[in-house]
């Protein structure tokens, strides 16, 4: 994962290099998020890609604890343990 992150940082957005697998594999559950968080939805379902991973992790943990009010994310985050949340946040952070 560290190597993948390192390589990702070197590749310019929009380019791709045939034959070189540089992107992180989506951790379990991560690919579902874009069903709502496409950035096209508005009304609170904000874009969550390219954000600082520790900020994303803190937000999801605040949904879990109830510190941050939610209608639905509080129900979804309970399907993941804290390490799984961190892995999803790290992956989202490097998505465009």
């Amino acid at each position: 994962m560290r190597l993948a992150l390192f390589l990702t940082g070197l590749v310019l957005p929009g380019l791709f290099l045939p034959g070189l697998c540089w992107a992180m594999e989506a951790p379990p559950g991560a690919s579902s998020c874009s069903g709502c968080h496409t950035g096209a939805s508005g009304a609170g379902m904000v874009s969550i890609t390219g954000r600082d991973s520790s900020e994303l992790t803190a937000t999801m943990e605040a949904f879990r604890s109830g510190a941050r009010p939610a209608t639905l994310m509080n129900r979804l985050v309970r399907g993941f343990d804290p390490d799984e949340v961190k892995a999803i946040a790290a992956w989202l952070a490097v998505q465009k």
Binding site: G19, C21, A23, E25, S34, T49, Q95
Partner: peptide, 21 residues
């Protein structure tokens, strides 16, 4: 191919733009 890949990536941001072989 590159242009298409880029457009696809923009339109579907969550799918890793992995250049899988």
């Amino acid at each position: 191919v590159t242009r298409r890949a880029t457009l696809g990536a923009l339109a579907m941001p969550f799918v890793a733009r992995a250049a899988h072989a």
